[in-house]
Amino acid sequence: MKGIVLTKEQQQTAVAAIKSYFLTEKDEEITDLAATLLLDFIIKDIGPLIYNQALKDAHYFLTEKLDDLYSLEKPLSGKR
């Protein structure tokens, strides 16, 4: 399976968000390279955890919707 791949625009947005986070929360400026390396780490090592949780959430949602469909079944009278 292919890993998570961001478009150039998505990567730029993520790098800017990381840099903003460091400046706002830690009062520390980091370079584009440092933010990119952190983003790569997050995608590689943390991304699969988030992805797997999203799959579990989607499975739960779909299961609930399928249960709703089964509740629409009409009872059979057994008569012809």
Rank of each mutant, 00 (worst) to 15 (best):
E28S: 08
I4K: 02
T7M: 05
A14S: 07
F61P: 00
T7V: 10
L23C: 11
K65S: 00
K74N: 11
G3C: 06
R80G: 05
L37I: 14
N52H: 07
I18P: 08
K26L: 08
T63E: 05
D45T: 14
T36I: 03
G78H: 07
Y51F: 10
S77G: 09
D32K: 08
I42K: 02
I30R: 04
L72F: 02
I42H: 00
T13N: 03
P48S: 02
E25T: 13
T13M: 01
K2Q: 01
N52A: 11
K44A: 13
A54Y: 12
K2M: 02
K56E: 08
F41E: 04
M1Q: 03
L76I: 09
G47Y: 10
Q53P: 15
Q10L: 06
Y21V: 12
E64L: 04
I42W: 03
R80Y: 13
S77C: 07
Q12F: 02
R80C: 10
Y21M: 14
E25N: 13
K8R: 14
E29W: 06
P75D: 11
K19Y: 15
E73W: 11
D32P: 05
K19E: 15
R80S: 11
Y70A: 02
A14I: 11
Q11Y: 06
T36C: 00
D67P: 00
A58F: 09
L69S: 07
G47F: 13
R80F: 14
K26H: 14
P48Q: 06
L37Q: 10
S71C: 02
I30Q: 01
T63P: 00
I50P: 11
